[in-house]
Design a protein around this nucleic acid. Sequence first.
DNA 1: ACCATAAACTAATACCATTCGTTATTTTGG
DNA 2: CCAAAATAACGAATGGTATTAGTTTATGGT
Lengths: 192, 192
Amino acid sequence: MGRRKGPGLSAAQVLEAAVDVVQGEGADGLGISSVARALGIRPASMYNHVTSGEALARRVADEGTRRLVEALKSAVRGVVEPQEQLRLLAHGVRDWAVANGGLYGLMARVQPDYSSADIPPVARDLLDLFDRPLGQLGIAQDQRVHAMRSLRAAIHGFVLLEASGQFQLDADVAESFRWSVESLIRGVATAT
Amino acid sequence: MGRRKGPGLSAAQVLEAAVDVVQGEGADGLGISSVARALGIRPASMYNHVTSGEALARRVADEGTRRLVEALKSAVRGVVEPQEQLRLLAHGVRDWAVANGGLYGLMARVQPDYSSADIPPVARDLLDLFDRPLGQLGIAQDQRVHAMRSLRAAIHGFVLLEASGQFQLDADVAESFRWSVESLIRGVATAT
DNA sequence: ACCATAAACTAATACCATTCGTTATTTTGG
DNA sequence: CCAAAATAACGAATGGTATTAGTTTATGGT
């Protein structure tokens, strides 16, 4: 058959289709074939745009991180009180994850491939979002990395356990999250 | 060919082989074919032992939970101080997850299928392990579910972020975990 | 207008899960 | 003790996936 008329697919179009697949079918539904189907091309043609299925998943996950960081930035814009910033960040992650379950699930599976030497800007931004309020809270520089990891981990774990239905008891999950965030902030704020 | 001589494979043998595959090749390596290979039978014969690949994964994940709960039980055996129990539980989960990465990764993906009505004994045991020290700390009954979820989530999230290499900064991860656990215990212990 | 490149195609390979029908062994009930 | 039933293996077939190789054709630059 050869090439069809009109300009070929742009990287952005491929990424958009892949994101749509993930949002619609979940992280498991992402693959060379499903995205090819969504684009109306044959699976083999996908290799003109990505080098492998794994690379495709990595790109979509990176796009998810970009979107999450954007959502968090606008969530804390204009807020000055550090504890309130942390609260907004925590709830911002959970809200985004609930609204973008497929994407968040993919981001959790795919591990970044960048060597620990150079941290990409988007990851830097994510770190800074948490680092700033922690600094304003008076957490010493060398403790902040521990505090950041603690907060990220706690929020991440909560979202994943919630998404995979592992909170069995019939207590309000939203209330549990509020409780958890307040407890975390208390714990971090009282660090030496 | 028909059946081979001798007794057929027991459910325990199939499970053992599946666990070995997961431990050796990771959660992604688990499948009808890989376990059949490990057992020396053809993939089609696997369906005499499991109903589907998904069911196989669920069984292995359940076995993982059983083993984790056993490890935690023996970790806190004889310890009376509640904060020390929580510390041991947290570090017990992380240590087990590090030592059984494939199994823990699988447990994180597979969501249990039991209806929220009847909670299996092993899940009950896991809840109780955390519930007891929280009660001894004086956390009110109606707050304990929130506290339990917070602790589980924080530990779970830390382990997953660590396993997927998302802690980029070159600070000591073990030190971060210790810091996180102390912060969590402080936060929970000061709950109203 | 020409040519190189980009981007689609077809075809082929190699996995994987699953189902079906068949066969041989083991177990069980009369 | 033997025949019938249940069990557990098989081969073959179907349909899904990722991937590679070679081919064709439209587009964009010189």
